[in-house]
Nucleic acid binder design. Structure first.
Lengths: 229, 229
DNA sequence: GACGCCTAGATTGTATACGATTTTTTGCTT
DNA sequence: AAGCAAAAAATCGTATACAATCTAGGCGTC
């Protein structure tokens, strides 16, 4: 079956590379992404660089400002709230759908992810930390995949990626891994066919992540969009 | 506050025009949208036309095939199912959120929409029918706006637009308006602060639309993507 | 010394140009 | 007349070119 011939190889590749960099927080919110720089970096013309940046702006990961250029998105506290509100709204539903379709293979795969996640938490260093961030999101994404709904899957892709930005900006505890065991609990609940409990745990988990945020308005930000560079 | 300076005027305009044409079904699924034609039609270069088509492909309204061009999306039965599954998943949540934030002004606005919708149903002619299709979707969109979550709002934009395509392809009853009174019932339930009832009605309403579809696989479609033109 | 204006450089917005791929047409063969 | 092959036309993919806009630094005036 035709999986994905949507985007022209070049653009897709750049888009994915930049997105990974944003999600893994190698690129900080507010960083300027000039079309020429991106193009040179990937040895393509501005045309493709621009297309990639446009694509990322549709996902909410970069914001392009007319005649000023593209920047890694700098979500406002209000945006952050909406992102997590959206997750609270959709993730229980996705979880329910996934639970009805889940196979033993899927469960094994989920546990594999959990194991990997746990391993990374133990390790030291920037690289491990970044991989851990990605792994944490991958768990939620995996549930969306299992749900079998490509549309919800793409939506979750966007939400998880944007969440990473929000946590980078407003997260307090240096370790975002506090919720790792909660992932395991959710899987257990699914195994026990206790959907209500699984949903409850999921909502609790999301609330837990959100509770670690400090969403108070940044100092005198906003009078000139502050430190946009 | 800065509302929307996201897209360069030209592209945005083209994108909206084509999207409206698709949603109002002036453009049939599968119609080829060549970059040159679009560009000439709007008196801009292929560059902008291409950007607009790319944007629409991110919304799932057009599908671009490498080296072949862009076509008005032709959702498969499976895609159709997923679109409505997504709506069943998110619309109750949006409704609940909207109900807690709704103001008397909002309610008046909703009733205004209902009135307009009813008026169009009475009228004859293609134009009225098209306006009616749009109005029907606008009701669901209005709820998303009231919910105050820009992210869910954009998601609903996409879902409603894609639903229009699905109905164009698989809808059986010539009138899609069968569900008009159901909109009114939902508003009434909201006014009565009966959220559970409102959600029940919403799910019923979505199921009602879906029931009017004939999602059996089209004849021998798929061996060559069939009538792509 | 501070403020404002003005010019120079850099960056984005849009159009055009050229090579690559696909589709259609043409014309030959069977 | 039907089928196939090669050439012609159309269309897409990408790069480059030029115009418009923004940013920064310098100069002059107050």
């Amino acid at each position: 079956m035709a999986a994905d011939d949507s985007a022209e190889t070049g653009t897709q590749q750049i888009r994915d590379a930049i997105r990974d960099a944003i999600v893994e927080r190698r690129l900080s919110p507010g960083t300027k992404l000039s079309e020429s720089d991106v193009g040179n970096l990937f040895n393509v013309s501005r045309t493709l660089a621009r297309a990639a940046l446009q694509a990322l702006s549709y996902e909410g990961l970069v914001s392009v400002e007319k005649n000023r250029g593209a920047f890694v998105a700098y979500p406002s506290p209000e945006e952050a709230r909406q992102i997590f509100a959206a997750r609270r709204l959709v993730e229980p539903g996705i979880l329910r759908e996934a639970a009805t379709r889940i196979t033993p293979t899927d469960i094994r795969h989920l546990k594999q992810l959990l194991l990997e996640e746990g391993r990374l938490i133990g390790e030291r260093g920037q690289t491990a930390r970044r991989a851990e961030i990605k792994a944490s999101g991958d768990f939620h994404l995996a549930l969306a995949v299992i749900s079998g709904n490509a549309i919800m899957q793409r939506f979750m892709d966007e939400l998880v990626a944007r969440s990473s930005l929000v946590i980078a900006l407003y997260g307090q505890s240096t370790v975002s891994s506090c919720g790792h065991s909660e992932h395991g609990d959710i899987v257990t609940a699914i195994e026990n066919k206790d959907l209500d409990e699984a949903c409850r745990l999921m909502l609790h988990h999301i609330a837990h992540i959100e509770a670690d945020l400090d969403l108070r308005q940044r100092k005198n930000l906003g009078l000139k969009e502050a430190l946009k560079r």
